[in-house]
Write a protein that binds this DNA or RNA. Sequence first.
DNA 1: CTCATTACTTACCTTTAGGTAACTACTTGC
DNA 2: GCAAGTAGTTACCTAAAGGTAAGTAATGAG
Lengths: 120, 120
Amino acid sequence: MAAKEDHTQCPMESILGQIMGPWTPYILWLLSNENSLRFGEITARIPGISAKVLTDRLRKLEASGLVHRDYQPTVPPTVYYSLTERGAELHSVLQGLNEVAVRWDEEDREKEGKSEIAAE
Amino acid sequence: MAAKEDHTQCPMESILGQIMGPWTPYILWLLSNENSLRFGEITARIPGISAKVLTDRLRKLEASGLVHRDYQPTVPPTVYYSLTERGAELHSVLQGLNEVAVRWDEEDREKEGKSEIAAE
DNA sequence: CTCATTACTTACCTTTAGGTAACTACTTGC
DNA sequence: GCAAGTAGTTACCTAAAGGTAAGTAATGAG
């Protein structure tokens, strides 16, 4: 199932199909905070992602109209990625999610990590 | 890589690992709105999901402490799923995401669907 | 003349996820 | 004694996703 036939009866399913995926929300979150990043910079910020996968994610986000690709045909080519207006609309949602994430992280550290000293 | 070693340096990665996944945010969204659903009811609300996958997602959400499982050993067993307190904290984020989704959906209908008549 | 650089693309192969179908438990109703 | 109903589990198999490595373009440095 590559595209799931987009039996998109409900908007939620549609948006989830666009922004969900192994690294996708993280990429959006990065671009949401830095407003413009080169391909290599994104790779550096996401340890573990391969060029193939990152390219795939960026292409899909571009196709969804959430990310803008700015290709500069310089000697070694330079490509800048940034959020489109629509992509930027996700900022507050991602922000909210991050706040919850940070809160949980703190709570978990309090409970589990009271006496933990950098475990490894 | 089953668990990706949880090299969770950043809270965002951690939370994404817990709530991202093919059907996961959708399940959370359902439980967020209906506050308690039986296994079969969830299956019915998500056309296309298999029992195996739904079980898997619910078990993982339970393990993450986001979903509560209430097993009633009645004659044919009855199991109620609901969000935990922590799970409920995602409500506003999911709400925000849904608002964006609905807005985009309307915008897209305006642009593309001006003369479209239910295109089946 | 060759290497390094950036942002990929392609081919190939492995791993993982997910689908399907059959099976379980326990009691009621026929 | 057998089917029905709920909420799964298990085994088996296929399809898709992802990793790795190599290739590409164009130019300046050494």
